[in-house]
Design a protein around this nucleic acid. Structure first.
Lengths: 181, 181
DNA sequence: ATCCGCATGTAAGTGGTTACATGATTCG
DNA sequence: CGAATCATGTAACCACTTACATGCGGAT
């Protein structure tokens, strides 16, 4: 459901091919939604079948044909309905936290290694977001609301990573102190 | 994969029935992993088929029979292997953030309503965790590491909710200020 | 009597991942 | 000449959700 609406959201801005959407998910949407290309093509076909999008074949002169998808009026209505629907929080599912929960039997250095790997991971993710943040404009809510909202979603990802890193730090010191005590 | 290992983690502490696991997921595991009962029964059957768990039928005297699952030696090895495996971060998928990303066309009060609903949701989740935190002991890392680790995972959930609420506050004021400007 | 908790599962459907498959163009 | 990018998709599989199905015992 959400995937189809996110795709409609992108199509509402620009008509796009499956490939264009792949790039959109790999860049602008990467920090709040992930989608595989098999899923994207499957979902585009479904949107067309439901009348929420229409295709236009743009013949490639010296490249393969592009199947450009346009949002329909029905599609815009469906998008708005989804935006106003009651929010659902996704069920938490984080394998790392699950590991920590059951890590009691591991040696200290095994747990530390686990924490360090996760820390490197979270730092990389945070740095990737910071880099995007650095190159994009930082508008205020009054001027261009759409881009302000998009920049706020980026902020959310950054804050989440920073908080997670702080927690990982506390976890690591706890193990170190427990070991020395 | 993770679900089967989390189940093994629980079975490593106590032998359990599918129903016991349902309750474990609804309480102690609720803030880091969600599992439906259909999934639990299916996964238990798979663990038995793989030789990682064994069943013992405890006839119910005045209640239905209990199918108690015990972890095997193989099961303990598999659990340890999973604990030491390289961590994978779950792909981000949060419908609410996706909605904010595309919310530019909504009216101010529609966005505010959306934020307020999410805030109520996050506050409820935070309060539920605080309540658990209040009743459980708060051991230090040196004394009982297993329970300290479990309390740290709870902390992580709490911190995440608090940070999210701070961000929702910033988002709300941004909209309000933009509207008045 | 009816609902809640205990206790077990199956069936059908949706959403997501991985691997397979093809072919042109552009850059080093 | 080989690798990367553009561009399209299919097939099979795994994970998760929702609805269906049954039956006992205790409380209101």
């Amino acid at each position: 459901m959400t995937l189809s609406r996110v795709i409609l959201g992108f199509l509402a801005v620009h008509p796009m091919t499956g490939y264009d959407l792949m790039r959109a998910f790999a860049t602008s949407a990467a920090y709040f939604w992930h989608a595989d290309k098999a899923q994207i093509y499957r979902t585009l076909a479904k949107l067309v079948a439901e009348g929420l999008a229409e295709i236009e074949i743009v013949p490639g002169t010296d490249a393969p044909d592009r199947v450009v998808h346009h949002i329909t009026t029905h599609g815009r209505t469906a998008l708005r309905t989804w935006l106003l629907a009651p929010p659902e929080r996704p069920a938490p599912r984080d394998p790392f936290i699950a590991r920590v929960f059951f890590a009691g039997e591991l040696e200290d250095d095994e747990i530390i290694a686990m924490i360090d790997a996760r820390t490197a991971d979270a730092e990389a993710a945070r740095d990737a977001l910071s880099a995007v943040r650095a190159v994009t404009a930082h508008p205020d809510a009054g001027a261009d609301r759409s881009s302000w909202l998009r920049s706020m979603t980026l902020d959310q990802g950054l804050r989440e990573h920073e908080e997670h890193l702080r927690w990982l730090g506390a976890l690591r010191s706890g193990i170190r102190e427990g070991a020395s005590a």
